[in-house]
């Protein structure tokens, strides 16, 4: 069984929601990224999403764009991603790792080499942000051959028929996009997101992680009550360590770790209270 599947199985058994932080590779330096992964894992992250910086991230909001610009202008190279993952694995980190990337970076290296190196480094999945199902046959075949899950996205504007088709090829978990737009913080979950979660739950037994705009514990409770298996948080984490950096890197990492624990606690509690209610 894949590491991702095993993780969600364990969470289902212990009735916990998943907490999935997103980390932009190379922002504030590669060492910082490595340390961030370690701290998040220690705080209880169930899956870590590692984002590859891209020059033209059209699905991302201002916070992640800025992080990507910082990373690229400090000289980040795609090859570093594999080092980061294999180092985390040799340090004993067992948290599943999903790599979030724009498709051009995969094409450039070659689908087979990219997937092979990811698998060898110890990653578990790929989440291609700008690859809809119409274009994804090649990647699905090759990733599958390397035992990597291709994580599929659905959005509130994905209609029922399309959702069913996407779910057919979905592996690991489904990534539900909470807003019609780009990443960045929002206060609460829009109605369309709640409706999407219900539609997804009706159609599939796969775990559902909801992301884009998640930053607080109230949203975690809302999302899980509406049927999500967990939440993804990105921009908010970047903002937290940006604020903390005036206290030095350790201070920033402490703040992130504390926040991550709180989010994981909410995710843990939310499933139990959902079960009680139903």
């Amino acid at each position: 069984m894949s590491r991702i599947a095993a993780t969600f199985e364990r969470l289902a058994e212990s009735e916990e929601g998943a907490y999935i932080p997103y980390v932009c590779c190379g922002d504030r330096g590669v060492e910082f990224t490595g340390e961030l992964m370690r701290r998040l894992s220690r705080a209880g992250a169930d899956v870590i999403e590692l984002g590859l910086p891209f020059s033209d991230p059209l699905a991302d909001g201002p916070t992640i764009q800025a992080a990507m610009v910082r990373s690229l202008s400090s000289g980040f190279k795609v090859a570093t991603l594999f080092d980061l993952i294999s180092r985390a694995r040799s340090d004993g980190m067992d948290t599943p790792i999903v790599v979030m990337t724009y498709y051009n970076l995969i094409i450039r290296m070659g689908l087979d080499i990219f997937c092979k190196r990811l698998a060898e480094a110890g990653a578990d999945g790929i989440l291609p942000v700008d690859l809809p199902m119409e274009e994804s046959a090649d990647l699905e075949r090759i990733a599958g051959a390397h035992e990597l899950d291709v994580i599929r996205l659905v959005s509130p504007t994905t209609n029922d028929e399309r959702m069913a088709q996407i779910l057919q090829s979905a592996r690991g978990f489904v990534y539900a996009v909470a807003i019609s737009g780009v990443t960045g913080q929002r206060d609460s979950l829009p109605h369309s997101a709640i409706a999407m979660l219900k539609r997804l739950r009706d159609k599939s037994d796969l775990p559902i992680a909801i992301g884009f705009g998640i930053s607080n514990q109230e949203q975690v409770r809302q999302a899980i009550a509406a049927g999500a298996s967990g939440v993804v948080e990105g921009s908010a984490l970047i903002d937290i360590y940006a604020r903390g950096l005036s206290e030095g890197e350790d201070g920033a990492l402490d703040l992130v770790e504390k926040h991550a624990r709180e989010m994981k606690d909410s995710a843990r509690a939310a499933v139990a209270s959902r079960e009680k209610r139903s």
Binding site: A59, D130, E134, T158, R162, G181
Partner: peptide, 21 residues
């Protein structure tokens, strides 16, 4: 299922799901 909008091997429809509809 191949997307529409190809000119030989070029073109297609490489967009985030939020833009598909």
């Amino acid at each position: 299922m191949r997307a529409k909008g190809y000119f030989g091997g070029f073109g297609g429809f490489y967009v985030p799901e939020v833009l598909v509809a």
